[in-house]
Every structure is written in structure tokens, then in C-alpha cells.
Design a protein around this nucleic acid. Sequence first.
DNA 1: CTTAGATATATAATTTACTTAAATATATAA
DNA 2: TTATATATTTAAGTAAATTATATATCTAAG
Lengths: 120, 120
Amino acid sequence: MSSHEFIKGTLKTIILKLLAQNKQMYGYEITQRVAQLSKDEIKLTYGALYPMLYKLEGEGLLVTTTEIVDNRARKYYSLTAEGKKLAKVKVSELQRFNEILRVILRDNEKPNVSLKLWAC
Amino acid sequence: MSSHEFIKGTLKTIILKLLAQNKQMYGYEITQRVAQLSKDEIKLTYGALYPMLYKLEGEGLLVTTTEIVDNRARKYYSLTAEGKKLAKVKVSELQRFNEILRVILRDNEKPNVSLKLWAC
DNA sequence: CTTAGATATATAATTTACTTAAATATATAA
DNA sequence: TTATATATTTAAGTAAATTATATATCTAAG
């Protein structure tokens, strides 16, 4: 399974966001959700995902509960109050960063015609 | 000088984009341009910037010319043909990644009222 | 006249956070 | 029985950042 070079630095925030939205998820489910949301363009690697989940648990940002489903252990992760708070902060920080990046990457050669639509 | 955790993985593309846009820039100028475009929210660290510039030079993506300005050496970087090609690819990849991230980070709880403005 | 701040490049040491790879195990469909 | 999907875990290696430091000049402030 391969990922995307640009995932670096954003993985923690992506996990926090998904858990903020879903109350509880298990690791495999998180990878599938990201694949689905990105139309298979981003595939989280387990070698990055699980260590990050343990780290977040160690930081008190999430707690785990293990359930047996189809004879297999499944570990659910859910945010603590602190985790929920941090999720909000991190998500808005990353949204802001993305906005800045959009400006930097914007094509400045030809003026953007669609700007004219603002007048409507 | 501190940076931004989300810069990870995007620095190379940011440098390529700025050089694609400006023909030639020197290191310090690149940090100032990013600071300006981000309203001081992103400050590139020299410890990240210069090693990346040498790496890009080593990869044949850019060439350098040194000029003396005010008795001080100033090293200008400009993209090679290969660098220009890669800049286009990397910029569109990062733009696409940002689009995906925007979807993942989008607030799905409450419907976005501003969507109604599209009707005008 | 000297100190601080802006300009400018370079690099060593360290740390973090990834990728790659492999191990383990079960269910299900071909 | 073979492959594919489901599911977690962790070791080894690497890339790319942070932090810190060194060097050097110019200009403005005091």
C-alpha cells in the first residue's frame, strides 16, 4: 500500500477530523474512509497509521475499546474531550494552511476570468 | 525562525512554483516571498531551505549563478527545462491533494448556508 | 563608535514522521 | 486451495524537517 508524499504532517489532523466526525472508528476503517473520500488517490499506510494512533492514545487524545467481530479483535478509537478540542484547532489550522498554499500555487500568469462572477 | 508543521512534504513544490513564476530568485528572497504571500504565517527555515535548494541543483532541476550585490555574494537559482516540467507536475499534484484535503476537512454537520449564493 | 536589526548563505546535530516490509490471523469467494 | 479482503502490529531504514550555530556585511539608531 502506498501513500502520497503530501500526506506528511497532515496525518494527525486527518485522523482527528475523522474521529471527531464519527465518534468511533477502527484503524482499517480509517484507511478505507480516506480512500473513499479521495477516490483512491490517498491510501494511508498501516506503518504510519497505527503508530500515530498509539501516539495519540499516549497523549490522552483518544481511548480504545476492543470488540470481537466475526471472531476477530477489532480496536475502536474515540476522541477524549481533549482530543475533540484539539481536533477543532488542528482542522482549522490545516484549513488555513491550505488556503495559503492555494494562494502560493495559484497561476498568476493569466488573470482568473471567473473572478468576474463576483459582481453578480 | 520557526516554520509550520504542515510545510512538511510541500517545501519542494513551493520552491519549484516560485522559481517557475520568477525566472530567478535567491534563497533569502524565497523566504521573504513566502512570508509575504502568507502574511507572515509561514516562515521557511534556512536549515530546510538551503539543503533543499542544493538537492534540487543536484537533481538537475535548477542552476545557480552568483552575483555580487552591495559587496555581498548573492546566489540566484533558476529552473532548468527539466525543473520547469517538474514544477508543473508537482504544482498540479499538490493542488489536487489540497482539494482532497478540503473535502476531508469539510464540516459535514451543518449544511453550508453560503451555497445558496450560487443561485445568484 | 558601537550596537541592533536586516540582509544573506551555509551546515552540523538531532528528531520526527514517514515508507517499506514482514509477521500474524481469519473469512469468504472463486 | 488459492486469492482476496479484513484487521492489527512492529522492526528497519530513510527523508526531511527543526534547532542551533557560524560567518559576514550594510544601515540606522543611540
